[in-house]
């Protein structure tokens, strides 16, 4: 295991620009709890909220509608909107689960979504967004393994919401929550494999 970096730790005596590093009086410090990125000079955080990026996939729930503009609850402090137009009309209901793509981010907290697609039935769980990459795994290995082992359909949003339907949903949920809990523990793929294939 690499050495842990704490908030306020000196990263460089000079001014560097790197992820999760801030500069004060010409020196660079970590702004998170994490570890050094071996391929760069930034810090990879252990935990962290979701910072939206254009073109990434999110999952949310329709929470209100007015004049063909739908507000989507992404489980974060952001305000996310699906804006219908003259030629693009949607017919979502409040409470519908939607998968969509981040099209634009305004003033740091308003997100414009595009290509919304309703995910029917099933359930949604929310995990820490920082654990989503681990849940997906390299080339989707982790998520495919859970999906196949439980015969469930699973859709993953980068904002931390995960939609699950069919098959053994309880087992799929338990496996996903275990990935969240043990994201940093070596050998996770093996343990999850054992968990979902045992039944």
């Amino acid at each position: 295991m690499q050495e842990i970096v704490y908030p306020g730790d000196l990263i460089a005596d000079t001014q560097i620009r790197a992820p999760n590093v801030y500069v004060e009086n010409g020196k660079s410090y970590s702004m998170v709890l994490g570890f050094k990125d071996s391929s760069g000079s930034g810090i990879i955080p252990f935990e962290g909220g979701w910072v939206p990026k254009i073109e990434e996939t999110v999952i949310g729930i329709i929470s209100s509608e007015r004049n063909n503009v739908y507000e989507v609850d992404l489980g974060s402090h952001h305000r996310a909107l699906i804006i219908g137009g003259k030629y693009e009309r949607f017919s979502f209901q409040i409470g519908d689960v939607v998968e969509a793509t981040v099209k634009d981010i305004e003033d740091g907290r308003t997100i414009i979504l595009s290509y919304p697609n309703a995910l029917k039935e099933g359930t949604v769980i929310s995990i820490k967004p920082s654990k989503i990459p681990r849940l997906i795994g390299k080339n989707n290995t982790m998520i495919n393994q859970i999906s196949q082992g439980t015969s469930s359909k699973i859709s993953v949003g980068m904002n931390g919401m995960v939609w699950i339907r069919d098959g053994n949903v309880a087992l799929a949920t338990a496996a996903i929550l275990r990935v969240e809990e043990e994201a940093h523990v070596p050998g996770l793929t093996g343990r999850i494999k054992e968990m979902v294939e045992k039944r």
């Binding site: 908030p7 306020g8 709890l33």
Partner: peptide, 11 residues
């Protein structure tokens, strides 16, 4: 706060 992952200048 550190364990929450919020960005902070110091512990």
């Amino acid at each position: 706060l550190a364990s929450s992952g919020l960005h902070m200048k110091d512990l």
